[in-house]
């Protein structure tokens, strides 16, 4: 039994040590008075994760509290969003949200959440869709690409992240506008899709502006789906300039459980709006290829309604929705 006692003592000591570690926080009445859980409904390393990590340091500086990032991957985000509203609704649980995911998924099948059940309070950036080729590709301009596609219908293969996603919808939309036929190959996440591009497994990629920023020198962007050129990529034309009406991308924001009090939600909205306004934050995000937007709790619903129309139209064309 000697060993058993020793084992017990060790466990007790461990328990006490952890107890001390927690005895620090919480006297101020001001929200937040303890760490805030920030759940990313995807795995690590993706655009959602990286932008959350950028916010982390600024959140701490602004509020004095930690923003604790954790991952809850599965079902293309559905695992997280279907459980969002059953989490503690005190403002200390927030979750990343993504467009078009939260619009398209619930329309396909019952995935345990509805678009209107998600109480978003901020949409803070988007990654504009971009047509990307490897640096050594013969396609120098978008016109080269279109010409080749017209001569070889269906033979151009394009990697992209998932189906029913922004990349996929951009491919569908562009094929229609340019009157070409290409083959979309879905990969799991942008990382795998870039890997396929760099390895010449596919002809080109429907990626994001972030691909251009992070793989500088190894890839060339033919065009980006933005209103104006991206500050980090001043030489890359927009589709609009070239005569194609595409402004699209994956929009990312943050939501709280539905029953979170309105004043707490407002405070969170203000905090993240302030982070978004910080020039240092903007510089870091734009340097990584993100494009910032400033949707707050007040205009969230209008924004979603507008985007829903666009996505649904594209998804119907692409056969993702019936």
């Amino acid at each position: 039994m000697n060993r058993l006692t020793r084992f017990g003592a060790a466990l007790a000591a461990a328990a006490m040590a952890t107890g001390f570690a927690i005895a620090a926080p919480a006297f101020a009445n001001e929200f937040p008075s303890k760490p805030v859980n920030y759940i990313i409904p995807f795995g690590p390393g993706g655009e959602s994760d990286i932008s959350a990590r950028h916010q982390q340091a600024f959140f701490k500086a602004l509020t004095g509290q930690d923003l604790v990032v954790s991952y809850k991957p599965g079902g293309g985000g559905a695992v997280g969003w279907s459980q969002l509203n059953s989490m503690g609704a005190d403002g200390y649980n927030i979750m990343g949200i993504n467009l078009p995911h939260i619009v398209i998924k619930p329309m396909q099948k019952d995935v345990g959440f509805k678009t209107e059940d998600i109480a978003g309070f901020s949409m803070f950036h988007y990654t504009p869709d971009a047509l990307v080729v490897a640096a050594d590709s013969p396609f120098k301009t978008l016109q080269d690409f279109i010409d080749h596609a017209k001569a070889n219908p269906g033979k151009i293969t394009l990697s992209g992240s998932g189906k029913g996603t922004s990349n996929h919808l951009a491919q569908v939309t562009f094929d229609k506008l340019a009157d070409i036929k290409t083959t979309y190959v879905a990969f799991k996440g942008t990382g795998a899709s870039v890997q396929a591009l760099l390895g010449n497994q596919v002809t080109a990629q429907w990626g994001y502006t972030t691909v251009g920023a992070q793989h500088e020198g190894k890839v060339r962007l033919l065009a980006v789906a933005m209103d104006k050129r991206h500050p980090k990529l001043p030489d890359v034309p927009t589709f609009k300039e070239l005569g194609f009406e595409i402004v699209s991308g994956a929009y990312r924001g943050i939501a709280v459980p539905k029953s979170t009090p309105a004043d707490v939600k407002k405070k969170l909205s203000d905090i993240f709006a302030k982070i978004n306004a910080d020039p240092a934050f903007r510089e870091k995000m734009e340097g990584d290829g993100f494009a910032l937007i400033d949707v707050t709790a007040d205009n969230y619903e209008a924004f979603i309604a507008e985007k829903t129309k666009e996505y649904v139209a594209a998804a119907k064309t692409g056969g993702v929705l019936e």
Binding site: G75, G76, A78, S82, I104, Q108, D110, G162, A186, F187
Partner: peptide
């Protein structure tokens, strides 16, 4: 669950527990 590279939801039989 939700297929990784196609958009379908498979073999969940209507159960949300299995979506992920």
């Amino acid at each position: 669950g939700v297929a990784e590279v196609s958009a379908d939801i498979r073999l969940t039989f209507g159960s949300q527990v299995l979506v992920g």
